[in-house]
Amino acid sequence: MDKAPTAELLDFILESLRLIKRRFSGIASSDDFLDSDEGLDKLDAISMRLQSIGEALKNLDKCQQELLLMVANKEYWNKIIRTREILTHHYIDIDAETIYMICDEKLEELEQKILKLREYLK
């Protein structure tokens, strides 16, 4: 995989993170996802974007693993890819608390790592 498709995947991840953050604004607890149709819509939309991020990283891991390893170890990336597997194959088991925790605690770190990867490509 050359730099152009890699850059496109990284840009897609960054755009997905931006959309998740926008959708997550106003969510103060995992209950906010479950208390209304609007909250459920946000939970679904965020879950889909998290799934897409995991898919993009899965593709990068296949072709650009050495690039990913420049900013984090394999275990870090595997956790995100495994989350994608859960969202894809066990959607009925999605836990609003887990999605809330990911949005509240993990997105900033991922965004910083993706921005570093973009810099390495330049």
Rank of each mutant, 00 (worst) to 15 (best):
M1G: 12
D2K: 07
A4K: 08
A4Y: 05
A4D: 06
P5F: 00
T6F: 01
L9R: 11
D11G: 14
F12P: 01
L14P: 01
S16Y: 07
L19W: 07
L19G: 07
L19V: 09
I20M: 02
K21I: 10
K21N: 12
R22F: 10
R23Q: 10
R23A: 05
F24T: 00
S25Q: 13
I27H: 01
A28R: 13
A28V: 08
S29D: 05
S29E: 06
S30Y: 12
S30D: 08
D31P: 00
D31Q: 12
D32P: 01
F33A: 03
D35A: 11
S36T: 03
D37S: 10
D37R: 13
D37T: 11
G39A: 06
G39T: 05
G39K: 03
L40H: 12
L40S: 06
D41Q: 10
D44H: 06
D44N: 09
A45W: 03
A45G: 05
I46F: 02
I46N: 00
M48Q: 11
R49E: 11
L50T: 00
Q51C: 10
S52F: 08
G54P: 02
E55H: 05
A56R: 01
L57F: 03
K58N: 15
N59D: 14
N59Q: 10
L60P: 01
L60W: 02
D61P: 03
C63T: 15
Q64P: 01
Q64H: 09
Q64D: 13
Q64K: 14
Q64T: 05
L69P: 04
M70I: 09
V71N: 09
N73K: 09
N73D: 15
E75W: 08
Y76H: 09
Y76W: 12
W77M: 07
N78D: 15
K79R: 15
I80N: 07
R82A: 13
R82G: 08
T83A: 15
E85N: 15
I86R: 12
H89N: 09
I92E: 15
D93W: 05
I94K: 04
A96E: 10
E97T: 12
T98A: 15
I99C: 04
I99H: 00
Y100T: 04
I102C: 03
C103D: 01
D104I: 03
D104G: 01
E105M: 13
E105C: 12
E105L: 15
K106S: 14
L110H: 07
E111K: 14
L115A: 07
L115H: 04
K116V: 07
L117V: 04
R118E: 08
E119K: 13
Y120N: 07
K122D: 11
K122H: 06
K122Q: 10
